[in-house]
């Protein structure tokens, strides 16, 4: 990876960093922070699903682990929230490695892998909902104590910048994946596992690497969620909603691309807000649109928004260029 590879990332992040200067309304900032958390969750999914072709339907397992770790470590054990955050991400990596080891070792792929990840997430949800350590169905409340060393801030902009920095860091990470041997091997596994093996790719190790990274990134999003909303319960942390969000954004934005998850998350939640404005406060209307969009995207725009843009640009170039008969 060279510096030139990350120039677009730096440009996009720098541009976005100015948003809180112009936008100060809390509702808008809330929306932006939430969207960035979803983008981060989806960036994690994209490493495994987009680059590795292993579609997990249970990324809630990682998101929830991050969220609960961040909350419980500080509430129950009094650990500093920043350290809890780091541990939370590592816990996500560990859970990722474990789920990956069990399922990839048994050769699960395709729909079977989707199902088993879904089941792992459900087991964790039920456990978190029942155990007393996790606060059971009542969940965990993080005490409000606004101080930077507590990972709590006066202004929402601070959170926005932290979320943005994390998203930026993962953009760089993803770009590195795209440019590295690990990434090439991961994509090879996605395209054709047998051929990859024949070329000396240790497919198990590569997939494990991907799910571990993926788990860490999505868990970091979970930590951020807990820290922002100061509350976690089983249906939020380990609920299917977040697994679905993790899948939707990369597919809408552009599967297996660096910017796909971010573009997808912004587009989806932007659209969601518009739908809510248009339809009033009908519950579920935004998600209904997302579902339809997923079907349409898979059917007609398999490369997502970024793919559409690329195609548009190409056809614009073609029509702009002088024609030869």
């Amino acid at each position: 990876m060279t510096f030139r590879d990350i120039v677009p990332i730096i440009a996009v992040i720098a541009l976005l960093a100015f948003v809180p200067v112009f936008v100060t309304a809390n509702t808008v900032l809330n929306f932006l922070v939430f969207t960035l958390i979803i983008a981060l969750t989806a960036q994690g999914w994209n490493i495994l699903g987009g680059f590795g072709g292993q579609f997990s339907f249970g990324h809630a397992a990682f998101f929830g682990t991050g969220a609960y770790a961040a909350a419980l470590l500080q509430v129950r054990l009094g650990i500093n929230p920043w350290i809890a955050f780091a541990i939370g991400a590592m816990a996500g990596a560990a859970v990722g490695w474990m789920i990956g080891y069990l399922s990839f070792r048994s050769g699960l792929r395709g729909s079977y892998f989707a199902l088993v990840t879904l089941a792992f997430a459900e087991v964790l949800r039920i456990l978190a909902n029942a155990a007393t350590f996790t606060g059971g169905a009542a969940g965990v409340l993080i005490k409000l104590h606004v101080r930077p060393e507590n990972f709590q801030f006066e202004s929402r902009s601070a959170f926005f910048w932290i979320a943005l920095a994390l998203v930026g860091a993962v953009l760089v990470l993803t770009r590195w994946i795209e440019r590295s041997r690990f990434g090439a091997q991961l994509v090879a596994v996605r395209e054709n596992e047998a051929a990859a093996k024949a070329l000396g790719v240790d497919t198990l190790r590569v997939k494990l690497g991907a799910i571990t990274l993926s788990g860490a990134v999505t868990a970091a999003a979970g930590c951020l969620y807990a820290q922002y909303f100061l509350y976690v319960d089983a249906n939020i942390a380990y609920g299917t909603w977040i697994s679905v969000e993790a899948i939707l954004a990369p597919i809408i934005g552009g599967l297996g691309t660096v910017f796909g998850p971010l573009v997808g998350a912004v587009a989806l939640h932007g659209l969601g807000e518009v739908t809510k404005l248009a339809a009033g406060s009908v519950p579920g209307i935004d998600l209904m649109v997302f579902g339809v969009l997923l079907v349409v995207a898979v059917g007609f725009a398999p490369d997502g928004i970024l793919g559409l843009l690329r195609r548009l640009r190409r056809s614009a170039q073609l029509s702009g260029a002088p024609r030869h008969a």
Binding site: A184, Q185, A188, N192, A195, L199
Partner: peptide, 24 residues
Amino acid sequence: VQPFAGLSVIENIAVGAYLHHAKR
């Protein structure tokens, strides 16, 4: 034949080359 259908020809070959060349 088992090509990596979504990749370009050179990227296909590079997967093999990466076995003994770590740098892109």
